[in-house]
Write a protein that binds this DNA or RNA. Structure first.
Length: 609
DNA sequence: AGCACGCCGACT
DNA sequence: GTCGGCGTGCTC
């Protein structure tokens, strides 16, 4: 009989399987992990195909990593589609969604992944953050039926980061699949979940294809969080992969966020997603303080010190939010931001080059000396950074202790966590318990609105909403801004999400941004600027002429004199964009020369940097 | 991605 | 004469 051959994919950037001979007596299946010699070393790969063929000088597989597959047929299909949609290799995609390999020789129970027969899928749902609390209680009581509307089944929760995964696992007494847990515990949760024990598992991106017996519920926590799509392969948003998975296996999909991505809100306006509106809960007073013409010398308008005093009197803490950097240019008198006339995106300010450039289309302009809207001369980029705000605050409130919130990881525990006033970026608001603050002040919301990214408004709105949720209903949110009438501010004042999403979706539709069109960034790094430029122009040339897509001019990113020059260009296109650009770019992407430059393709970038 | 093989400059 | 730099190409 002709020997049994398997095709195995590895964590390599090459989109090709490698063939091996299966030794007599070794039972193997698709989706199973094996150790096989590659490059003279044993490496872990996933079997994607079995066939009978002549083995002409093929190496044999060394061993199976587990006695059962880690991926079901449905998960393999989902991964294959995901890899194609993100222009990544199947091997690196599967590797990113695999449990850690076992310690050698350690025997452990392992259940195979349940196969599902996709039935009719329920419409995915978009839930406000308020509701998981209800759901969580039901889950703990083994009464999932009440809120989930079906007999208790298994559920997978995908969190944006390890810290969030840990907290949710503790609250739900769920198994942990994320890399913050020990490998043994992760493996126990992975293979246990396949048999429904534990019934609830929590993980991060790496858990997106974890096995669950049907009927399963898939939950994406903090759906809007950019951490659901980190840069680099597999270049895919957890939301999209989870949606594909839910469709493939007929699972119920819940997207959870108090401030959903505009993409999801837009889909919920159609019938691809069902939105559930919460009854409005208690809401603090949100005040817009107009800073036009008055924020030059002091960072605090009248309402802000008053809010700080009230909060201190009430014994509650205050958070002051500053922008880390404002990379764009605005007018201090009328509040106008210099924007690209074609793209609507704030123009990025480069001090070194003394120029404004559009990150999307690459259009460049010299620095203006006056505001085209009002003629004012007071144009500024740097708003109020942490240091300047801290100094002003200490001067104004000498008796109050003021702390700076650093990056969560680097923060020293001793840096006065109980300080009544904390200054930080909007990331600070994620760590604050709901309703626990006396006041939040945005020193200059414009620093957020000026970010040279079409999602600047969305991020500002999400920060404002998070601030209102972090503040006690008797407290106050003070928003100092040159744009007190901005619809993101208005939505926060009125506690009305639609006030933001309505105009924002209109803006996205008019200028062709997600969810109406897909974006892609093609970038090139090379040893020499000329080589990088030549390669990006070659990419542009092979992309031009594809029907239905827009290729923007290539532009140099980053510092002008970077050691490794980087050029990139932005593409806009329809939903099938990855399929359209795959073939034309393939020869350029496969040519992997270091000095001559390497091509990287980032589908659906979550930041335009 | 790793890792080997290959072709040009300074060392025992 | 070789040791070793990186640049290019292959991995069942």
């Amino acid at each position: 009989m002709t020997p049994l051959i398997v095709d195995v994919v590895f964590d390599l950037p090459v989109d090709r399987a490698f063939s091996y001979l299966v030794p007599e007596g070794l039972g193997v299946a698709r989706g199973q992990r094996v150790r096989a010699p590659l490059h003279g070393r044993l490496r872990v790969g996933v079997i994607v195909e079995l066939r009978r063929d002549e083995a002409t000088g093929l190496q044999p597989i060394r061993e199976a990593v587990e006695p059962v597959p880690v991926f079901s047929e449905a998960m393999l299909r989902t991964a294959r589609r995901a890899a194609a949609d993100s222009l990544s290799s199947l091997g690196s995609t599967l590797a990113a969604f695999s449990p850690p390999p076992p310690r050698r020789g350690g025997a452990e129970p392992a259940a195979p992944p349940p196969e599902v027969t996709p039935g009719a899928q329920a419409t995915p749902e978009l839930w406000p953050e308020l509701w998981p609390e209800l759901w969580m209680d039901a889950a703990r009581d083994e009464r999932l039926t009440d809120t989930l509307g079906r007999e208790s089944g298994s559920a997978l929760l995908v969190a944006p980061d390890i810290g969030s995964a840990r907290r949710w696992a503790e609250r739900l007494d769920a198994g942990r699949l994320d890399s913050g847990a020990h490998d043994d515990a992760r493996r126990a949760a992975w293979f246990g979940a396949a048999r429904g024990r534990p019934r609830l598992v929590v993980g991060t991106r790496s858990a997106l294809l974890a096995p669950l017996p049907p009927p399963a519920t898939l939950v994406l926590l903090d759906e809007h969080d950019a951490a659901h799509k980190p840069p680099g392969p597999p270049r895919l948003h957890s939301r999209e992969l989870l949606a594909a998975r839910a469709a493939a296996e007929g699972s119920r999909l819940l997207l959870l966020s108090a401030t959903p991505s505009v993409e999801s809100w837009g889909r919920a306006d159609g019938d691809a997603l069902r939105r559930r509106e919460p009854a409005p809960g208690p809401w603090p007073e949100v005040v817009a303080a107009d800073t036009r013409g008055i924020l030059r010398n002091h960072p605090l308008t009248l309402p802000l010190p008053r809010a700080i005093e009230d909060a201190a009197r009430g014994g509650r803490r205050v958070a002051l939010i500053v922008a880390r950097d404002a990379a764009a240019l605005g007018c201090d008198d009328c509040g106008d931001i210099f924007r690209c006339g074609d793209c609507g995106v704030a123009l990025a300010l480069s001090r070194a080059a003394r120029a404004l450039t559009c990150r999307l289309c690459g259009r460049g302009e010299p620095l203006p000396d006056r505001c085209p809207a009002c003629g004012g001369h007071r144009l500024s980029a740097v708003g109020w950074g942490v240091e300047r705000v801290e100094a002003s605050l200490r001067k104004r409130f000498p008796r109050l202790s003021v702390a700076r919130a650093g990056p969560a990881r680097a923060r020293r525990p001793a840096s006065d966590p109980a300080a009544p006033v904390v200054i930080g970026t909007s990331a600070l608001l994620r760590e604050v318990p709901r309703g626990s603050l006396g006041a939040v002040g945005f020193v200059a919301l414009d620093g957020l609105l000026r970010q040279p990214d079409f999602r600047a408004g969305e991020r500002a709105f999400q920060s404002l909403w998070a601030a209102a949720e972090a503040v006690h209903p008797a407290g106050r949110v003070v928003v100092q801004t040159l744009h007190p009438d901005h619809y993101a501010v208005r939505a926060a004042i009125l506690q009305a999400r639609q006030e933001f999403y309505g105009p924002e979706i209109k803006f996205r539709a008019e200028l062709g941004y997600p969810p109406f069109r897909r974006l892609c960034i093609v970038s090139v790094v090379a040893g020499e600027d000329a080589a990088a430029r030549a390669l990006i122009e070659a990419c542009a040339a092979s992309l031009r002429g594809i029907g239905g897509i827009d290729v923007y001019p290539a532009a140099r990113r980053g510092a002008p004199a970077a050691r490794r020059p980087r050029w990139s260009l932005v593409i806009k296109g329809p939903a099938e964009l990855p399929r359209l650009i795959d073939e034309p770019l393939r020869p350029l992407r496969e040519r992997r020369r270091r000095r001559g430059g390497m091509v990287e393709v980032e589908m659906d970038p979550v930041a335009l940097a």
